[in-house]
Structure formats: structure tokens, C-alpha cells
Design a protein around this nucleic acid. Structure first.
Lengths: 143, 143
DNA sequence: TTCCTTGCAAAACTTTTGCATTAAA
DNA sequence: TTTAATGCAAAAGTTTTGCAAGGAA
């Protein structure tokens, strides 16, 4: 099902289904946050989400945005990234992938898994196993 | 020159030389911070450094620790890591390398460059070039 | 002296939490 | 009606900053 050209509003019932499928009660605020975030693959901060929703006339508190993002991340609906120390970024793409990080403007760009190939990786220390691999390719302006 | 078995105190004059070589005035606090951090490859937070120095009887303020760490990082003497969202970690190893991140206890373990080999990497977007590659292999307890 | 560095406290930011109120099932 | 979610404000944690005092050149 291609939802590329649907607007957040058209996605509401689809979003509700998705939250229900995760065992998350689809309240008004949660649906708005999920709708915004899941409308396209993107990277947003809590503050951006709060501003965007309030700009659209929604009544949402900062606490609810944070609580909801943590809730979603805990259910694997979104993924929290630590690319710069300044704040958390929330990635609506939970499929395995990597990132370009443009140091010039802070932009994050997805890198699909097939674009990266490891021909050698270190064995995990005894008693541990690999839970995931985070790869960030930092970019600067070419002179 | 192998400094593996020298104590921080024995390193002081060596550390001073290193700071001078970077154009950094080797004040008492800076030498202590550099001495601690550069005595071995390790990952420390600002708070850990402050506690360690004060525990050793040094008179240092939190502001100076932060200012100094930023100063050192700006001169390439240490490297700031963003591996979890909670705080910054300062890595005394500035040679290119990657990290294991043990999710069980938060530990960071260096991974030497030769232990990782990329057989494919995406071309950087037009107008940009690769400034660096950060790789974090997250570890969990093996069951 | 002159400039730089430090310490302290306060401020700035991001994120979490307590609790009364509101909304959902 | 009962439970869970929200909003607000306050708190907590990390990092930065303003400014007076101290130290180096």
C-alpha cells in the first residue's frame, strides 16, 4: 500500500490502526504526533514536533511530546538517534539503515543498507552479541 | 616512546610539551586534565574528570573542565563522542578508530581500524566530501 | 601592566517527573 | 466509572556564559 501521496489527515485512521497494532491507545495527541512523524521518512527533534503541531493549531504539551516519543521508540515505531550531542533526533524509518550527517547544516540523510558492505567486522567480545550497528558518515563542503 | 607505565605525575612535563605544541598555554588545571585523559586510551565524561581530579585533591571548577575539554577537542588533542544521548564522552584516542558500545553497562571499547573493512560505501552527495566515519557496534548480553 | 584563565553562580537547554485535571474505554 | 493520558510547572541533568578575582608573561 503506497501512502506516499496521502496527507497526515488522510492517514489518521491508518495511524490509529498502527498504534492499536502496537498496543498503544490512539489518543488525539498520539495520533497527531504519529501522523506527523510517519507521513514520510524523516528526522525530527522533540522541539520541532511540538512547534509543528502547535503551528497547526493542536493542543499538545511538551511533556506529552517527550512521553509519546519515548513510548513510540519503546514499541519500535520510531528510532531515537544520537548523532550530535545537542539533542535527540527521532527517525521515522525503523528499517535498518545508516546516515550521512552534513556538518555544514546539520542535515541527516538516510543511507540504505545495500549501499554499505562490510567485508570485515570484529568479533563481539566474549559473552556479548551484536545488537545493532550505527554508522554515521560525516560530510563537509567540498572545496 | 612508550609511556604506558608512566604515572600522570611523571607525564606532567611531557604533557606540558604536548599542550605547548598545540599552542595551548599549559596552566595547572589544563595539565592535570590532559595528564589524566592522555595517560591511557580511555573514554571519560566531564563529570568523571571533575570527580577524579577533585578526589585527587585538585582545585578545579566544573566550568574549567568543560572549557578545557572543548579547547582540547578544538585542537584535536581529544575527540568528543556522541554515542548515547545522555552526555558527551571524551576519547583520548584521536587516531581513527571505531567503537563497541555495551548496552548492558554503557562501556565503550575501541575497535581498531584494521578490524573493519568496507567493501562498499555510498558516494557522498554532490558538493560534499567525507569528513569522517563514526561506527558504533552496539552489544547486548549473549543468552 | 596587560592579557588570559579560573571559579563561582547563574543561565540556558534538553528531558523527566509530580500531580491535579481531562479524556478514553 | 475506572483507568490511563494530558498539561502545567517544577525539577533534574548537562553544558555554557558573565563577571570578578587570580595568575602568567
Amino acid at each position: 500500500m503506497d501512502m506516499t501521496n496521502t496527507t497526515p489527515d488522510q492517514n489518521v485512521s491508518h495511524t490509529e490502526q498502527r498504534l492499536l497494532g502496537c498496543g498503544i491507545r490512539p489518543t488525539a495527541q498520539r495520533v497527531r504526533i504519529a501522523s506527523l512523524l510517519l507521513s514520510a521518512p524523516q528526522h525530527l527533534s522533540a522541539e520541532q514536533i511540538l512547534a509543528s503541531l502547535r503551528g497547526a493549531g493542536a493542543r499538545v504539551s511538551k511533556a506529552t511530546v517527550y512521553n509519546t516519543l519515548n513510548l513510540f521508540a519503546g514499541h519500535g515505531l520510531i528510532r531515537q538517534l544520537s548523532v550530535d550531542g545537542s539533542r535527540a533526533w527521532f527517525d521515522s524509518n525503523v528499517d535498518a539503515h545508516y546516515h550521512f550527517h552534513d556538518l555544514t547544516n546539520g542535515a541527516l540523510i538516510d543511507v540504505p543498507v545495500p549501499d554499505v558492505e562490510f567485508s570485515r567486522l570484529p568479533p563481539p567480545p566474549a559473552g556479548t552479541e551484536v545488537a545493532g550497528i550505527d554508522l554515521v558518515i560525516r560530510l563537509r563542503k567540498k572545496m
